[in-house]
Design a protein around this nucleic acid. Structure first.
Lengths: 159, 159
DNA sequence: ACTATATTTGAATAATTATGCGGCAAATAT
DNA sequence: ATATTTGCCGCATAATTATTCAAATATAGT
């Protein structure tokens, strides 16, 4: 049984990158990924992540990431456990200014780091723009730096 | 049996003005207002109005209308199942944070979209920065999101 | 008006989602 | 070391929501 934080992250990826229309579908994908859980747990996870099922325009339903507001819970969640983070090379520093984070990397590494962040988009991150050695991360409004740091922590070394 | 349109309108108002957490609650309010319907019909109405039940911050659930602020996510969702529909400029979604707008596009389209915006510079827009699939739009300081959306609307599909 | 076609609806039910409860394990306190 | 608390989870089931089916009602064309 993998740990819960990893599972939550996988759920977010599934929600963002694919078009699931029931918990059973999500469950199926998670099990394919090697997680071992039941619908009951998934339901609780979705509640915690504040993921919702909304009517789509094609006459069926789709699970989507919620709008703003799950930060508090997510932060508590992340603080509670000790995720093993993969540390991509090239990271140099991170600094904040308002609702922006500026990540400095070794030359050439910005793109891959931004890609990592993008493909795992935490809800706190609206998007990223990468130059050669700098990643600009645009954060959700009302996110403070500590929260942002936590959201980005999977992508950067021990903060 | 009252008019369906009137009923839908009442449902919208109920959703907007009160915190209902189940269809039964909505149903009760509608019946109090003199409508005569069952949960089955309400479920269909909610589907038609694309009203969703989302996990709330108080540990329970709330029905909400899609609103501005969640525009981007909903739009991604909306367009995903209609791949044949051509999106001008590769537009995918727009989100706001403070005096910034972040526009996501299909890969490679950010530059041309930014160029379009730049060459038509609305007064609300100070400038743009484009990556590969993301355009950062820097807005005049005291522009609100609605105004910004309006200013940018010529460049994005109907919101 | 009359028939054909489409829309709307309720009843029943299917399908889906949420949760009470107990077990278990890890952490914390005594 | 033992007791207590805390968090996580599955099972079973409750609660909720979506849909099928048939009937009723509305709409359009002639």
């Amino acid at each position: 049984m993998k740990n819960k934080a990893a599972r939550l992250q996988s759920i977010r990826e599934i929600i963002i990158h694919s078009r699931v229309k029931s918990q059973e579908e999500i469950l199926q994908k998670l099990i394919e990924q090697g997680f071992d859980l039941t619908q009951a747990t998934l339901s609780r996870d979705l509640k915690q992540l504040r993921i919702a099922k909304v009517p789509g325009n094609d006459g069926s339903y789709v699970y989507i990431m919620p709008e703003i507001g799950s930060v508090g819970k997510l932060m508590q969640e992340k603080m509670g456990d000790n995720p093993q983070r993969h540390i991509p090379g090239g990271f140099i520093s991170i600094n904040f200014s308002g609702n922006l984070a500026v990540i400095k990397t070794r030359p050439g590494y910005a793109g891959s780091l931004a890609y990592d962040i993008d493909s795992n988009t935490p809800p706190e991150v609206l998007g990223t723009i990468a130059g050669d050695d700098t990643v600009l991360v645009i954060l959700e409004e009302h996110i403070n730096h500590q929260q942002a740091l936590l959201a980005l922590s999977p992508f950067i070394p021990e903060v």
